[in-house]
Amino acid sequence: MTRVWKWNRPVTVREVLEDLQQERTIAYTTVMTVLDNLHQKGWVRREAEGRAYRYEAVSTRAAYAAALMNDAWSQSDNPAAALVAFFGMMSEEQRQALQDAVRIVQGPETRQAPEAVEPRAAQAEQQENPGSAEGAAGR
């Protein structure tokens, strides 16, 4: 899959083979079998081109990683503990990426500046305890 994602376009067995052979010796039939297995599992789609096929990833590498993480998390008998353990393994860069991702998922309508949160919290407290703000101001 790494080689298919690398090009980000439909690739032939020959192209993947030639790329892999720069690092190690590998047989054409091995690459063909792996790509066929990936097709049967639904990870790549293929289109005939002459006597060969062109293979293309069905999803992005990021979507694949997300599916793996979701699968692992859903198998936990204690998802919260699994997340805590996972976050504990993260590097500082990974934690920053996680915070950035959460901000993106939340969207601009849920993001609040700290100054915007304070007045709402004070307003909610005042509604619960109507005399508390006056008493606090006089202290």
Rank of each mutant, 00 (worst) to 15 (best):
A97L: 08
E93R: 15
A65W: 12
Q106N: 13
R54E: 05
G135N: 11
F87G: 06
E23L: 11
R111Q: 14
S59H: 12
Q123M: 12
N37A: 14
L38S: 01
T12S: 15
A67S: 05
R54I: 00
M89G: 10
A136S: 09
L17Y: 08
V102W: 11
I26E: 01
T30C: 04
R103L: 13
T110D: 14
V34T: 09
D100A: 06
T2F: 15
Y28H: 12
S74Q: 09
L83T: 02
G88K: 02
Q40S: 05
R3L: 15
T33V: 05
E118T: 15
G135W: 10
N70P: 00
S91L: 05
A66S: 07
G42S: 01
E118V: 15
G135V: 05
R111N: 08
A85D: 12
I104T: 15
T30A: 12
E92T: 13
L38G: 00
V58E: 06
A122F: 04
V4C: 03
V34P: 02
D77K: 09
M89E: 06
E128A: 14
T12D: 12
P10T: 01
A72Y: 08
D36K: 10
V34Y: 13
R103H: 11
Q123N: 12
I26Q: 01
E47V: 04
N129P: 00
A67E: 08
V16K: 02
R3H: 15
R120P: 00
K41W: 08
M90Y: 02
A63I: 02
Q75V: 00
Y64M: 08
A66K: 07
I104H: 14
N37C: 07
V102C: 08
S76T: 02
S91P: 00
Q75P: 00
S59Q: 09
A62W: 03
N8K: 13
G138K: 13
N129R: 11
R51L: 01
A80P: 00
S59D: 07
Q126F: 03
Q106F: 11
T33R: 15
